[in-house]
Simulated scan of single mutants.
Amino acid sequence: MSQVQTLDIMLPHYGDTALMQAAVRSVLDQTDKDWRLTVVDDGREEGVPEWFSSLGDSRVRYMRNERNLGITGNFRKCVDLVESTHFTMLGSDDLLLPTYVETIRAAVEAEPDAAIYQPGVEVIDENGNPSTSLGDEVKRRLYAPKNPDGARLVLSGEPLAANLLGGNWLYFPSICWRADAVKPVGFREDLSVIQDLAMIIELIKRGEKLVVDPALAFRYRRHSGSLSSAEAVTGARFSEAVRFFNEVADDLDRHGWPKAARAARRHLSMRLHALTMLPGALRHRRSDAVRRLLGYALTRSE
């Protein structure tokens, strides 16, 4: 495989129509025009099908689910619909910078054997302004690999798995994936907010590589209305995380990766994240969530 075919950009949509339209326009504005956008609408907002019809672009296909599939179900459907060698799962509130497809194509051509391609990401807020959160700073300063010379990095194996299980510094909607690696793995139906990390760890176990390209190509929107933020305030996402980390730790022990298994059992960054969610739970007067968050953050790791 020497080059990427037409890049499939999959957009599983549910939520704010205006933000979704901005995401679509960011695809239309690409400098490299060799892409195909597939929007799978899991909602029922009025006027959305008509808006897509008005675009008049044969590279854009729109479909609306007959019934609501939920976030993971819609992700799985998007993967099933991928036709090209590589694809991106764009968030419906995120934005591609104009050079995204161009950047990804260059990374794939340089490192064709990888399965995961992470470009440079700028975090923005609800209004599209650059934003810095404690979580993003921790990702950047403590967990993301250092690359002072600005070259692409190729990472793999147990060191990468241990690194990501200690603190996941990837931005899932910005990643480009090699389809033939992802399709046999897919997204787990029993996970709703950590399903991306679960799939990535499985890919790494199978010997796949991650390419980190420092070229800024994506704008990731972080706001309080996201599913992960809402579940964090209640503490629900951490119940899922505990289950996942315990399962994957046992699996990695069987796989012969003890360092990665220890990182999974400790999951220090997720514990710190739970502590950062305490003020929100207190503001919402959710005493049940406060107890869950404290319990998760302070439970002794094995």
Rank of each mutant, 00 (worst) to 15 (best):
M1H: 10
Q3R: 09
Q3N: 11
V4E: 00
T6G: 04
L7I: 14
L11Y: 08
L11G: 11
H13C: 14
Y14G: 12
Y14N: 13
G15P: 05
A23P: 09
D29H: 14
K33W: 02
K33Q: 15
D34F: 02
R36L: 08
G43W: 02
E46W: 04
P49V: 06
E50P: 02
E50Q: 15
F52M: 12
G56R: 10
G56Y: 07
Y62Q: 08
Y62A: 09
N65P: 00
R67Y: 05
L69T: 05
G70D: 08
F75G: 12
R76H: 03
H86W: 01
T88W: 01
L95E: 10
L96V: 02
P98A: 13
Y100T: 08
V101P: 02
I104R: 00
A106N: 00
D113Y: 02
A114W: 06
A114H: 07
I116R: 04
I116A: 08
Q118L: 07
E122Y: 00
V123P: 07
V123C: 07
D125C: 09
E126A: 15
E126F: 11
D136K: 12
D136I: 06
R140W: 01
R141M: 07
R141I: 06
P145H: 08
G150S: 01
L164K: 02
L164W: 00
G167K: 09
L170W: 05
Y171V: 14
Y171L: 06
F172S: 15
F172K: 11
A181S: 13
V182E: 01
V185P: 04
F187R: 10
Q195V: 04
Q195M: 12
A198E: 08
I200Q: 11
I201P: 00
E202D: 14
K205P: 00
L210I: 01
V211D: 01
D213Y: 00
L216F: 01
F218V: 03
R221A: 05
R222M: 07
H223R: 13
S228I: 11
S229I: 00
E231N: 14
V233M: 14
T234S: 15
E240T: 04
F244H: 10
F245Y: 15
V248K: 07
A249C: 07
D251C: 06
D251Y: 03
L252C: 04
L252Y: 03
D253V: 12
R254L: 09
H255N: 06
H255R: 13
A260S: 08
A261Y: 07
R262G: 08
A264K: 03
A264D: 00
M270K: 12
R271E: 02
L272N: 03
H273M: 09
A274Q: 01
L282F: 11
R286D: 13
A289F: 06
V290P: 10
R291Y: 06
R291A: 14
R291E: 08
A297S: 11
L298A: 11
T299V: 08
